[in-house]
């Protein structure tokens, strides 16, 4: 069955129609890529799905419930994890505490005033860090991490409550090409291990077409293609969108 349904989403910022009437579905366990030239409205779509931005029109249905009006934290409790285009982590906390606070939130242990946080959930936090390969950095403040490691930490945060849907906005932005491929492989592996569906975007087309089961193409806020990678790759409209926008990453 369809895990997530986006139905007629629309959003304008100050008269600028950034997302106009976008509809699609994501099945359980499916890996879907949402691509498009710069400014196409991808991040806005992610923000609408995760609750950071309220759409002007349209509905978001997750696992049968209408979540359009729910806050980001409620959506997270229902099982939607997310990564941001610019890695968002808690800079002054150590890498371990970053994951720890997510796990504490998952277990509803946040409202403890007198217990020592450092005595809680350390093992699980370390296991999560090992999963994404940054366990050796566990006691460093997150603000000291290299960008690629921050992106991995963010992946660990997004996975912290084993979400049924992962929303990853450019999970490999700022990485070197080999790093990108290994991170995407890791993402795919972890998503399968945790049974999560993934909606992701990236500007590296090779990587995207390799990982995705299905590709959606957004141009100027409208969905212009939806299909398996090979189909989308040869779609003339898609080629036109990218070439017409003079993008530096042609398909």
């Amino acid at each position: 069955m369809t895990l997530l349904v986006a139905d007629g989403l629309a959003k304008a910022f100050g008269g600028n129609q950034v997302v106009g009437d976008v509809s699609f579905g994501i099945g359980a366990g499916e890996i879907v890529a949402l691509i498009g030239p710069n400014g196409a409205g991808k991040s806005t779509c992610f923000n609408i799905l995760s609750g950071q931005v309220r759409p002007d029109r349209g509905r978001v249905v997750f696992a049968g419930t209408d979540i359009t009006a729910l806050s980001p934290s409620r959506r997270w409790r229902l099982g939607i994890g997310r990564g941001f285009q610019v890695a968002a982590t808690f800079g002054s906390l150590t890498v371990r505490d970053n994951v720890r606070v997510a796990l504490l939130s998952r277990d509803r242990l946040v409202w403890r005033f007198l217990r020592r946080a450092s005595a809680l959930l350390s093992d699980e936090a370390d296991a999560r860090l090992a999963e994404v390969g940054i366990l050796p950095l566990a006691s460093q403040p997150a603000s000291t991490l290299a960008y690629g490691d921050l992106k991995r930490l963010e992946l660990a945060l997004a996975l912290s409550n084993t979400p049924r849907l992962l929303l990853m906005d450019e999970p490999t932005a700022g990485m070197t090409p080999p790093d990108r491929r290994s991170t995407m492989a890791l993402l795919r592996h972890l998503a399968q291990a945790h049974g999560s569906a993934v909606l992701l975007t990236d500007h590296d087309m090779d990587v995207v077409f390799q990982i995705a089961d299905r590709v959606l193409v957004l141009d100027k806020g409208r969905l212009i293609a939806d299909g398996v990678p090979t189909e989308v790759r040869s779609d003339p409209q898609v080629r036109a969108a990218y070439l017409g926008n003079d993008d530096q990453h042609p398909v």
Partner: peptide, 11 residues
């Protein structure tokens, strides 16, 4: 540190 991130881990 990061309000949007905090919200998206359920805080």
């Amino acid at each position: 540190d990061d309000e949007a991130r905090a919200r998206s881990i359920g805080l």
